[in-house]
Nucleic acid binder design. Structure first.
Lengths: 333, 333
DNA sequence: CTGTTAGCGCATTCAG
DNA sequence: CTGAATGCGCTAACAG
């Protein structure tokens, strides 16, 4: 039971291949009523399905987008993937998902193989360490949109959270001090992490509060307990803490529980990224949510702009989204 | 700056297309040292990348797997996707992810378009309502593996949790009664839900406990609070409860919090699906975990068996995985 | 070791 | 309205 081709259908219906092709492309004007029926029947009988690869080869378009996430398992990636899927589906596009695991070499490999697969565009959570490659892509006019992270001096639009504002919101929701902020590894200088720490410093300065670097910490996930230990061993332990992403927030919850730290009495907490548990923790966590669906929509819209019109409408590289403040009980103000 | 083809490279290097093709396929034996260098240079200069579509067309293989999940956002789907990605990546395969949203019509549409895209195989969380289509696929000898759900009378292997055992574990971890079990919608008779309810009944019977259907509930996510209300309004409210998936467990946590139900004193709880929060809830939740990585590995292995050898090694349709019991403090035994 | 030839399945002229 | 011819980019014999 081999796969039927357009030629088989043509033979079966006693017409020519091009007539069948017309039919498939719904150009019914160019054929008789009965011809149409015969073709329809033949397609049914042979279980014929057009070969998308062949069409793509001819039409130089694959209707597929390559998506490279830094880590599928992270909550924000998942939300974005979910949002992108919905948008792509509307346009009849499919997506190939790859995982860079925040390793530049993997990212490079994936970009290259996706290129070989002739994807029509990319959505990438960039590692940031493949600048030459990003530049080549732009020069070859390949549609590409970054998400979550921004790479300077590149004409590639980035869709990201207004991290400064998020930290301003966070800081303004505490009525205690000193405040600490913790994020995950800074090895790759990943935009949201860098910006959130910087936003923290700025928010303090704005309030004429001293910026003490020992309260501004970062490290691999497994180092976080140690970091918390150090923080709470300071002469003046933090009274408020900001967890800048889901990883940190989870580790912090674990730590708080283990050490029976009372929230908000001993420690007030603000976390970035809405998670299922933030609402039913004791106490529920004051959270700053990223509007992931809007962000995915924006990314998809930008990408299609470039794919369909060959260029971005606006000469704008930065699309910042408003964080959503969810006041709950881990802060008091 | 148009894309270079193999012909451009050949011209640039003063050799024939087929020599270049040999080079690309690493059949270096058939060419001179300097020829090789010249080709390498030409490829560099022209930024040449082989067109994977063209190769696929010729080779009748796309090195891509279609993955259809019931809902990307569910924790188990995400974990499986993550596991599959790792396995596929090892073999140089990519995956196209689609969302059926548990709608049979969407599932059908996705299967059909993925077929047109000539995917080499499928991994599907089946809705169960497209039996004719599943059957056609099997008859056309298309590699396909189901996950999480089992469809009877089909020669399609399914990778799933040993749900009976999971419920036996759950029931045996309580030292109170009556016990209740809650799952999400049963409209589609989705395997894990059906089996978990049935496993619950069986576990009770085994212990000569009465099976009372009013303690065995199911409903849409938004109906769950109402269902909990009803359960706790019974003459004898449940003293122990099993949440059969992450949705139910989250709704239950919300409910328990809202109504200040004391766990485990007033209500003992066991949940299925390990989640970030199970460990740091108060109290930590006794959990039954699905070995998602092993399951993804198994699914991938089966699929590749069929892809590479044209047949499954074993005439076996059911691959059951041992649940992992994580005793924590929401149960007392 | 290298070049020629002939498709893979489809879409698109361009004559009939 | 239909059919023949051509090519998308690559691979795979098969000669040389």
């Amino acid at each position: 039971m081999k796969k039927a081709t357009i030629a088989d259908v043509a033979k079966h219906a006693n017409v020519s291949k091009s007539t069948v092709s017309q039919y498939l492309n719904k150009r019914y004007e160019y054929m008789g009523e009965e011809t149409r029926k015969k073709i329809a029947e033949a397609i049914q009988e042979l279980h014929y399905r057009p070969n998308f690869m062949a069409r793509s080869l001819k039409q130089q378009s694959t209707f597929t987008i390559g998506v490279i996430v830094a880590n599928i398992i992270h909550s924000f990636s998942t939300k974005i993937i979910n949002g992108l899927e919905a948008e792509f589906d509307k346009k009849g596009f499919h997506m190939i998902i790859c995982n860079s695991a925040d390793e530049p070499s993997k990212e490079k490999k994936h970009i290259e193989t996706l290129l070989e697969r002739q994807v029509d565009g990319f959505v990438i959570f960039p590692t940031g360490k493949n600048e030459a490659l990003y530049r080549t892509l732009t020069m070859q006019n390949i549609p590409i949109v970054f998400i979550d992270r921004f790479i300077e001096k590149l004409e590639i639009p980035s869709v990201l959270l207004d991290n400064m504002k998020a930290m301003e919101m966070a800081v303004s929701s505490f009525n205690v001090h000193p405040l600490a902020v913790v994020t995950t590894s800074l090895d790759l200088q990943i935009t949201p992490r860098v910006e959130r720490l910087e936003g923290f410093r700025l928010a303090l300065q704005k309030r004429n509060m001293e910026v003490l670097e020992e309260y501004i910490r970062h490290g691999e996930t497994k180092e976080l307990p140690q970091i918390f230990d150090e923080l709470f061993s300071l002469a003046t332990p933090p009274k408020g803490m900001i967890a800048t992403n889901d990883r940190v927030s989870q580790e912090l919850m674990l730590y708080v529980k283990k050490h029976q730290i009372r929230v908000p009495d001993d420690l007030q907490i603000v976390v970035i990224d809405e998670m299922p548990y933030t609402e039913f923790m004791t106490p529920p966590l004051t959270t700053i949510e990223q509007p992931s669906d809007l962000m995915a929509k924006q990314a998809a819209a930008l990408l299609f702009e470039k794919i369909e019109m060959g260029t971005f409408k606006e000469m704008k590289n930065l699309y910042r989204f408003e964080p959503i403040f969810l006041k709950r009980d881990s802060t008091l103000l």
